[in-house]
Design a protein around this nucleic acid. Structure first.
Length: 421
DNA sequence: AAGTACAACAACCGCCTTATG
DNA sequence: ACATAAGGCGGTTGTTGTACT
């Protein structure tokens, strides 16, 4: 038995898992008559269930067009991409995966994808590097996980790996020693996020010099173990020094209230009134549900989105009553063209192109266009249409790729310029 | 072999929106 | 304009299956 007790409830209606006999009754009835009114259905079909239970059983399990079985890699990537844009809008996400139900996708996310992202040091809610305060205490584990992941992802033999784009330019074909450095840098990147994001909180202790020393030591010890390796063709030590100076700089900036890093993950400060179901209220999830990944917003393009648009997405009415609060928050913005040299780059950006396309892009593809992107096309009827026909969709930028590109891209963000140069 | 911990997932619950009178 | 019913959505629960000790 699964789920709830199968015993009769006080109203006399059965709950809990469905028996094959019940399934048969439901299927037979709907085949003959359609479901009609769900409330009336159970009686007519001879089922001792509430209509809601019948509807759920039909839509999530018995419907003939349901695809069962393991999620494919493409489906997995698509879910991650859609989640980065839509948040926990499971039904909307399900609308883009034929044959999959929202419930199935939700379960898959909670049991598989969430963990996968966490293991990579990526916050599954924001799709940004993890910022939880345990990250420092979890450093050894994270480092090991990152190294393992990076090693496997950058294995040349793994051609299906989402971190490796289809291009053959050897951008990402790093040697093992470099891979290890890459992994460390990824961890450091996370640490930086933590340091920056906690300096305005009561946990500012995380940014104390002792922690910086610890980080420095971490890298220092590594430098002696692989003396010849370099990071992206640069001497490591100056780079590390620069990185740590950057941390300090960010920290000090924040202390005086004008540093960008510390507030990157701050409140979204929504301007809209309370919306319990954001799908009918704004064209972006609100901070109330923590569904908008702040990094989705690209400051460079945000201004052009600053007009009311009414859109529908997968038949759910979405009305914008002005730009989401985060769009007005420079702290969530890319730094392509601003003076926040210290701000970390967003992994994915949302942009409205001149011809009215709402696009999501990775930090690197903003510049290099090397990786294709999901396109949300706003058609004349103001319907957002996720273009899945894109032949490059199998190489669509994901958080994984974004990380790879993030470390690979030498031109996208002045932040990385600042560090690397 | 038995016990324990965890993963998986169907099903439920409560809340919200939409439809209808 | 309002009340209520119905449908839909997202979060959560609780049992089963499996891996591990």
């Amino acid at each position: 038995m699964m789920g709830r007790s199968a015993s009769s409830e006080e109203n006399g209606l059965k709950k809990g898992p469905w028996t094959p006999e019940e399934d048969q009754k439901l299927v037979d009835y709907i085949r003959r008559n359609g479901h009609g009114s769900w409330r009336a259905l159970p009686k007519l079909a001879g089922l001792n269930r509430c209509g809601k239970s019948c509807r759920l059983r039909w839509t999530n399990y018995l419907r003939p067009d349901i695809k069962r079985g393991k999620f494919t890699e493409d489906e997995e990537k698509l879910i991650i991409n859609l989640h980065a844009v839509l948040g926990n809008k499971w039904s909307t996400i399900a609308g883009h995966l034929p044959g999959r139900t929202d419930n199935e996708i939700k379960n898959f996310w909670n049991t598989h994808l969430k963990k996968k992202l966490l293991q990579m040091g990526i916050d599954p809610v924001t799709h940004r590097p993890r910022t939880d305060l345990n990250i420092l205490s979890d450093l050894p584990h994270l480092l090991a996980a990152a190294a393992n992941l990076a090693t496997s992802f950058f294995d040349n033999s793994n051609t299906n790996n989402p971190l490796i784009s289809s291009d053959t330019s050897n951008h990402l074909r790093l040697h093992y020693s470099d891979t290890a450095q890459l992994a460390k840098f990824q961890v450091l990147h996370n640490i930086l996020q933590v340091l920056g994001s906690t300096t305005t909180s009561s946990s500012a202790a995380n940014a104390n010099p002792a922690n910086l020393d610890a980080i420095y030591n971490l890298l220092g010890s590594s430098s002696s173990s692989s003396s010849s390796s370099t990071i992206f063709n640069m001497d490591r030590q100056p780079c590390v020094d620069e990185y740590l100076r950057f941390i300090e700089h960010s920290r000090l900036d924040n202390a005086f209230g004008h540093g960008p890093v510390g507030a990157v993950f701050g409140p979204h400060n929504p301007t809209s009134t309370t919306h319990h179901h954001v799908q009918s209220s704004t064209n972006f999830p609100t901070s109330h549900h923590h569904q908008l990944a702040p990094h989705l917003v690209d400051h460079h393009h945000v201004l052009s989105i600053n007009h009311p648009i009414s859109t529908t997405c997968n038949s759910s009415k979405i009305i914008s009553d002005g730009p989401p609060a985060v769009l007005n928050n420079p702290l969530f913005c890319n730094n392509n063209n601003n003076n926040n040299n210290n701000q970390l780059p967003p992994l994915v950006s949302v942009a409205l192109s001149p011809d009215g396309h709402l696009e999501t892009t990775t930090s690197s593809s903003l510049m290099s266009n090397r990786i294709s992107n999901q396109n949300y096309k706003v058609n004349p009827n103001n319907n957002i249409n996720l273009d899945l026909s894109n032949p490059n969709s199998s190489t669509t930028s994901t958080t994984f790729e974004a990380w790879g590109d993030l470390l690979d891209d030498e031109t996208t963000d002045s932040y990385w310029k600042h560090i690397m140069e």
